[in-house]
Design a protein around this nucleic acid. Structure first.
Lengths: 115, 115
DNA sequence: AAATCATTTCGTTCGCCATCGAAATGATTA
DNA sequence: TAATCATTTCGATGGCGAACGAAATGATTT
């Protein structure tokens, strides 16, 4: 396998709920994902993510599981902020995926090719 | 869900064997994926794909299943050429995935955002 | 038509994982 | 410390899908 990390991230994104979470953090969460000057992080809490994705008022064990799966694959980051967990998307990981598919889309031979 | 097609393709690529197949067709199959002037297609046969991915001498039912899953999601195309099925990767689909992640990697608000 | 080659369909088995509710943990506030 | 809030862990259930072997289909050659 070319890239273990890529494979794991694609597996994480193969679940519609998890894909939805990443899209929410990246595109529908304006001003809520940034690093403060004191090193702190401001972003959507796990509960807010859950609310948006499932409509539940507080985080469910299922969404908690999905968030940790996404964090384990490197697609998001979670840090504790008081009693809440704050989630931010890892834009570098998304850019890396974009590059992976962009390279393949060229359809050019790699070093493993016969030519 | 933003894009049904994207979700289905990511699900297809979440299996390591299928990811391997796509990588093979895109990067390690030089000169074997092109459209001839008579409209015919030249590419790797299902058996060749299977040989490369699993080492089996002829196609297995498992790889056949994976190929059809990839075709159903639009990531590859299969056409019959005599008694063999010829497989070609859909570079447009890969480019589309690259664009999808590239857009998200910008971290900008979409129309669904609160702002 | 018969034989052969390439692939697919069928039916089964098995393991992984999404989901759920309830109990436990971590952190803050009163 | 007690109470409350946010999240996680635990344990169980159910369903999807990857893998496999055998039989069936499609296409070519003799």
């Amino acid at each position: 396998m070319a890239n273990e990390m890529i494979s794991r991230q694609l597996k994480a994104l193969s679940d519609p709920t998890r894909l939805h979470i990443v899209e929410f953090l990246a595109r529908e969460c304006c001003g809520k994902a940034s690093v403060l000057e004191d090193g702190g992080v401001i972003g959507a809490t796990a509960g807010e993510v859950c609310c948006h994705v499932t409509g539940a008022e507080q985080i469910t064990s299922t969404v908690s599981h999905h968030l940790h799966e996404l964090a384990a694959s490197g697609l998001i980051e979670m840090t504790r902020q008081g009693k809440a967990m704050v989630c931010t998307v890892n834009l570098n990981a998304l850019q890396n995926l974009a590059g992976y598919f962009g390279e393949m889309a060229k359809g050019e031979c790699s070093e493993g090719c016969c030519c």
